[in-house]
Computed example of a mutant assay.
Amino acid sequence: MTNALSRLLEKRDWLMADGATGTNLFNMGLSSGDAPEMWNEEHPDRIMKLYQGAVDAGSDIFLTNSFGGNASRLKLHNAEKRAGELSRISAELGREVADKAGRPVIVAGSVGPTGEIMAPMGPLTHELAVEIFHQQAEGLKEGGADVLWLETISAPEEYKAAAEAFKLADMPWCGTMSFDTAGRTMMGVTSEAMVKMVEKLENPPIAYGANCGVGASDLLRTVLGFAAMGVERPIIAKGNAGIPKYEDGHIHYDGTPELMGEYAVMARDCGAMIIGGCCGTMPDHLSKMHEALSSRPRGPRPTLEQITELLGGFSSANDGTGDLSDAPTRRATRRRRV
């Protein structure tokens, strides 16, 4: 273990990641349909403000503004030839913020899905997916990212292609999938299946886990599924700040900072070592999460009932693994939720 993230993981029993990228940028003026990655060049001050907000709130890791910065996604904006360049700039801005933090802060180069369906069901071949991910990885590496961070992946084939691409780039990486369909990814992957896939990779990630999805309760149930597999590889939990609601022309997430603090502690006790937020998670949420993680002792692993008591019911009766048919669903249990 020689990379910056691995060294930090050796010294700490939990690390805090950042929160939302899109939600924060929309609050800064990003319009729906625009490519956030263009702001790396057009509004670098706003991107650095995004990064700085996470650092000031106590994050040990923040993700670069490059989630949709691959050639496939940028093609929608006639910018596919700029994938490496825009990713490089996102990491350069992150490097500037992290190097001034006064403490170790990890710049994680965000890599999102291509937006294409992998062959044989769709047009994206393995070879092309590797090429797309490799191009973005090289840009993030050139910009100074400490680690690559694959996120919101649904298809195992895409996850495997990214792993191969990151090996070509000679970069350490982390990788999360989004479990949003009855405890499975959109392509049917369960928490158990993901762990088995990760452990068979020729180039496995430093840490793996779940991000986004339906809500905090569902995400923590997935984390419990990871932990039940008994693998020592660090687990990542990046849950949304509640459930999205459309109010006054904007999407609003109903999770309060205080409840995100509860989520963070519960995520740690479920077995996650890297804990952050996803959609709707703002700096004030992160501050409460950091405060809770720093001040509250580690507790026993929560039960499904304890999760729903604090964060609300699950969106489905089970997560596709084991017998969880008696788990409270969101319709039945909604006392409080993040």
Results as ranks from 00 to 15, higher is better:
M38K: 13
R336I: 09
G209D: 02
D45Y: 00
D284E: 15
S154Q: 12
P36N: 05
E158F: 07
H252Y: 10
R103M: 10
A241G: 06
G33K: 10
G69A: 11
H77Q: 07
S31T: 10
R336V: 11
S294M: 13
S32N: 11
V265F: 02
R184P: 01
L128W: 02
T125I: 01
R7K: 15
P113T: 08
N203E: 09
D248A: 14
T21A: 14
H43D: 01
G175F: 05
S31F: 01
Y246C: 05
S110G: 09
T185Q: 02
G68Y: 06
R301N: 01
V231R: 10
L324S: 13
R95M: 09
G313L: 04
C212Y: 05
S217K: 05
K49Y: 07
S110H: 05
K288R: 14
S110K: 02
S316Y: 09
G225H: 08
A35G: 03
S154G: 04
C279M: 12
G313A: 00
A98L: 10
R336L: 12
E202H: 08
I251C: 13
S295V: 00
K81M: 10
V223W: 03
T152Y: 06
D323A: 08
G188C: 08
T176D: 06
P283H: 08
L219N: 14
R337Q: 13
K245H: 15
F314E: 01
V214E: 10
A155G: 02
N240D: 06
I132E: 03
A264E: 00
E37L: 03
G109M: 05
E305V: 11
D284F: 12
T125L: 10
P120Q: 06
D254E: 12
G322Q: 08
G53Y: 06
F67V: 11
Q306N: 06
R268E: 12
P204R: 05
V214I: 14
I206Y: 05
L259W: 10
V214M: 13
K160N: 10
S325G: 12
G115A: 05
A210D: 02
V265R: 14
H134Y: 15
A207S: 15
V55K: 02
F179H: 07
G53D: 13
T281F: 04
N24Y: 15
L30M: 15
E199F: 03
D254S: 11
L25T: 07
T21P: 00
L76M: 13
P172L: 09
E199V: 02
H43K: 15
I61M: 08
E258L: 00
P104Q: 11
P172Q: 12
M48F: 01
A272D: 04
N211L: 03
D170M: 02
H43F: 09
A210T: 11
R73K: 15
S110R: 03
A35F: 00
L201H: 03
M289D: 07
S110W: 01
E247M: 07
T21R: 13
M187D: 12
G230F: 00
T333D: 11
A155M: 06
T256N: 09
S191C: 12
G115C: 02
R268T: 10
T308A: 14
Q135C: 10
F226W: 06
R95G: 07
S66N: 04
V105L: 12
A193H: 01
R298C: 11
V198K: 08
Y246R: 12
F226Q: 02
E164N: 05
D284M: 07
G19C: 03
D269Q: 05
K75P: 01
N78V: 00
L8E: 15
G209C: 05
M266C: 10
N78P: 01
D218P: 03
M273Q: 15
